[in-house]
């Protein structure tokens, strides 16, 4: 089997996951992930014809709440853990990638 993951793909996945990896880490992860993914891949040997994907073990549906206002946090509590703030706003260095949202 071809390697399931190479350095380029590791870099791409890291970028999707917003993880900066050092060259050393890229190398290390490539080897490890290769071995692990190869092991994972063995589930494809199993015949699951006619078996539904199971996202949930629970026998329940429709957990709903009424549309009633519940007390939340005040701005002071909301920003208590903020690494940086501007008044009652969260502050971040500039967003350079305009349009990188959805």
């Amino acid at each position: 089997m071809d390697n399931l993951i190479d350095k380029a793909l590791v870099r791409k996945v890291a970028s999707l996951a917003r993880l900066e990896l050092s060259e050393q880490e890229v190398k290390e992860f490539t080897g490890q992930l290769c071995a692990i993914l190869e092991y994972f891949h063995k589930i494809n040997l199993l015949d699951t014809e006619g078996i539904e994907p199971l996202a949930h073990c629970l026998p329940i549906t429709n957990r709903l709440r009424e549309d009633q206002i519940q007390p939340g946090l005040d701005p002071g509590q909301a920003l208590k853990n903020a690494p940086d703030r501007d008044g009652d706003l969260f502050k971040v260095p500039p967003i350079l990638e305009e349009g990188l949202g959805p």
Binding site: L89, F90, P94
Partner: peptide, 13 residues
């Protein structure tokens, strides 16, 4: 996101 003139951005949730 409220952009504060390029120096930084602010977020109101």
């Amino acid at each position: 996101n409220l952009h504060a003139g390029g120096a930084y951005s602010c977020v109101d949730l």
